[in-house]
Design a protein around this nucleic acid. Structure first.
Lengths: 361, 361
DNA sequence: ACAACTACTGAGACCGGTCTCACTATACAT
DNA sequence: ATGTATAGTGAGACCGGTCTCAGTAGTTGT
């Protein structure tokens, strides 16, 4: 029954309340002072007129924008959507809203999104940078006064707060546990693409979390006697077909691989499905550990052992840091490492037919 | 090496290019006409100065904002995050960005978010309304000129485009299939809360998709001879504990319930886990069909039969409709029903110990 | 009674764009 | 030569808020 289309402004309210635009603005905007009389008149006029403030105009004149930009690799992935929820919940409490963007893990898109968000004059940015070596666009954002917090990943070139999991530590923990159980050759499977499907130089891995994990993986495997651990890293598990290929290659390796590490829950699900389809039973025929405690990991039999990355908390913490920066905190940039414990369920077991004895070449 | 903090404006560029602010704005804004000479000078000046347009100011003066508000029940839920991805992909192609909000399926929050988004002067709204009977806030948005599209749900009070699944049809299809297999008493489990844990009046169900499905469920069951089908609807399956209780109640019912319909993938996963934990095997001891084809449904054994709601497409379609409205399409509001086929996998089977024979009371 | 201070107010500049409009060239028609 | 388009331009109003600043009450001090 009200509000046609032309938006009414403080000026309209002021007129109705018979005060100046400045006074009406003070009351409506909640700043400065106004007499009780004026306040009541304005509020009443605003009420009956159905005044709705225009935040666009507000942020224009204040410079502050109440919007935070978030750039993730893929919201569809529970890893990120959970983090986004954490971010959203924290932001909401601070009266901030969130603009979501998807980089699809492509640098060019990430750069484009940063530019768009900066044009929108977002108050800050929470980003999962897709390439730790190419962060000029983020540096520029910081330089121009927009605080940035990185999520799940970090770049040595970027002096901003970061919230990460303990990537190196979790790999070490998982491998140690598997070694204990008797596993000597373990595969690491990641969705990351490489030119020839083989692992190249570590420095060429853009996503820092992946790099850290693989680096830790290689070091650990070498330590426990594997001579060419790079052969145990399988890249490009980005869909069902490529994952099936990888599983085939894993099963074909000799001396045989007895356990698989899945870099994320999507890969974990695919590998699990692939193994079951081939009639293998876990953990007898193969042990499996996946990163991220997705829904499905407690629904399989046996249940999947996971490295639990509490991404909701990642998100919360990242939002907290950003809010704190927005409030003027200018302490040195810090990296917050969130514990990512191994949750052992049913897919870790002794490799079939052999115990802790090393198999000779 | 550039861009300190004070933002530079068209005026600055104009000065550097020795043209008027108006001309510089025309070149930079890509509207009106300008000579080749002027254009080059402005572009060059903008380049060397590192000019970044201010979209805030732009939308202020144009009135249009390049931002679309999206309100979902819970981004963490794959159902919605997938839809958001669909929305995001389509919006991006139309140079629109997306502000995400979570209503947590609470009307009060939904109302608040609509208000916030409207203040931000979003160009349009895509909403999964949590209560079809309380849509005044959305009506107001439409009345004030902000197009709205509802996602997965619709309200008879709201004359806007809606993108929904075929809720009635899918229930009918699933029940028909189960009936064929010999099932007579089927349970429907939903997360929706009711005051006393029992199903009240249908009209009191706020989420239209849920209401449609339950309504269809009741009708079908009654048609096939169940006298009090409301006893077969279990509400409040919102967490592990309450779902466990419901499973207990389902298993205790007599004459016995032989199949379960899970209203969403979260519930489906919980029920599956609960049934396995109790040593029941599917589909021999119980048939199960879940709505939404989540990741995990192909990872269990047996694989879960699902009603496939292609929410990515829901999202795409919704975004498409909104974009079309934004472009001025003012044809009558329409509801787009996306097919949601039953994908039969391993959890539909004949009920144990009895075939298509009706059991006497 | 006059100064000094406080509480409140309104006029108007400002944020950084868009966009209207009046105006100057030059081109073409008659 | 005069009239009439047509391309290009700049001055300045405008969007809807915020915020500075000068000014008007009213209060208190001495």
């Amino acid at each position: 029954m009200s509000g046609k289309k032309s938006s009414l402004t403080v000026a309209d309210v002021a007129r109705a309340a018979k005060v100046s635009k400045a006074t009406a603005a003070r009351v409506l905007g909640g700043y400065g002072i106004a007499s009780e009389t004026a306040r009541k008149a304005v509020l009443e006029a605003a009420e009956t007129l159905g005044y709705q403030p225009n935040d666009l105009a507000r942020s224009m004149s204040t410079g502050r924008s109440g919007l935070v930009g978030v750039i993730v690799g893929d919201i569809e992935n529970a890893f990120f959507s959970q983090a986004v929820r954490g971010i959203s919940d924290r932001l909401r409490a601070a009266d901030l809203n969130l603009i979501i963007s998807n980089s699809s893990e492509r640098l060019s898109e990430e750069i484009e999104m940063v530019s768009v968000l900066l044009r929108q004059r977002v108050a800050g940015l929470i980003v999962a940078p897709t390439d730790a070596r190419r962060v000029d666009h983020l540096k520029a954002a910081v330089a121009s006064g927009t605080p940035v917090v990185t999520l799940d990943r970090r770049s040595p070139d970027l002096e901003v707060d970061a919230v990460c999991g303990d990537d190196r530590g979790s790999v070490a923990q998982v491998l140690h546990r598997l070694h204990e159980e008797g596993h000597r050759r373990v595969a690491y499977v990641t969705a990351m693409m490489t030119a020839d499907g083989r692992l190249g130089k570590l420095e060429d891995i853009g996503i820092s979390a992946v790099r850290e994990r693989i680096s830790s993986f290689l070091a650990q495997m070498r330590d426990t006697g594997v001579e060419t651990p790079a052969d145990l890293v399988f890249t490009g598990a980005s869909d069902d077909g490529s994952t099936a290929d990888i599983v085939t290659r894993i099963l074909a390796q000799s001396p045989s691989i007895t356990a698989i590490l899945a870099s994320d829950s999507l890969i974990g699900a695919r590998i699990f499905r692939e193994l079951s389809d081939r009639g293998l039973s876990l953990p007898q025929d193969m042990s499996l550990v996946s990163w991220f405690d997705a829904d499905w990991t407690r629904v399989t039999s046996p249940r999947i052992s996971v490295v639990d990355q509490p991404t909701y908390q990642f998100g919360q913490k990242a939002a907290e840091r950003l809010i704190s920066r927005l409030k003027g905190d200018d302490s040195p940039a810090q990296t917050f490492v969130v514990a990512t414990p191994l949750v052992e369920r049913g897919t870790i077991g002794a490799p079939k037919g052999r115990g802790p004895v090393e198999i000779p070449d």
